[in-house]
C-alpha cells in the first residue's frame, strides 16, 4: 500500500510538486514563473525548494538566458514516483472513509 510522504505533504511543497509533475520529463520551469503561479514570496519558495532538493525530489539548475541569471526547477524521476505514491495514499484514505 502506498504511503504518505511527510516532506511532500506540506501544503506549499504539495503544490510545487503538483505543478512540476505535469511537465514532461526533463522539462524545467523558471523560478519566477513558479513563484507567480504559487503566489508565494521568493524566500518562502526558495526554502521549500531547498527541502525538496535535499530530499532528491526536484532538481535545481542555474543558467544564463540572454545574459540574465535564471533558476530552473524540475521534478526528478524519484520525485514523480514519490508524488504519485503520496496521491495514491491520499486517495486510499478517502476510499476507506
Amino acid at each position: 500500500m502506498a504511503e504518505l510522504n511527510e516532506t511532500i505533504h506540506q501544503p506549499v511543497r504539495l503544490r510545487i510538486m503538483a505543478a512540476l509533475v505535469i511537465l514532461g520529463a526533463g522539462d524545467e520551469v523558471d523560478f519566477t514563473y513558479l513563484r507567480n503561479l504559487l503566489e508565494v514570496t521568493d524566500g518562502n519558495l526558495g526554502a521549500h525548494l531547498r527541502k525538496l532538493e535535499e530530499a532528491g525530489y526536484i532538481a535545481v539548475n542555474k543558467a544564463f538566458v540572454e545574459r540574465k541569471p535564471h533558476t530552473y526547477v524540475s521534478a526528478t524521476a524519484g520525485g514523480r514516483q514519490v508524488f504519485q505514491e503520496h496521491v495514491a495514499a491520499l486517495e486510499s484514505i478517502l476510499k476507506s472513509k
Binding site: E6, P11, R15, A18, I22, L23, V29
Partner: peptide, 27 residues
C-alpha cells in the same frame, strides 16, 4: 504519518486545483 479523510480530501483538492492552474499557464 496519519491524517484524517477530511485532510486527505483537502490535499487532493489542492493538488487538482494546482495541476489545473499549472496546465493552463505553464504547460
Amino acid at each position: 504519518m496519519n491524517i484524517s479523510p477530511t485532510e486527505a480530501e483537502e490535499a487532493l483538492a489542492a493538488i487538482h486545483a494546482m495541476m489545473k492552474k499549472a496546465r493552463r499557464t505553464i504547460s
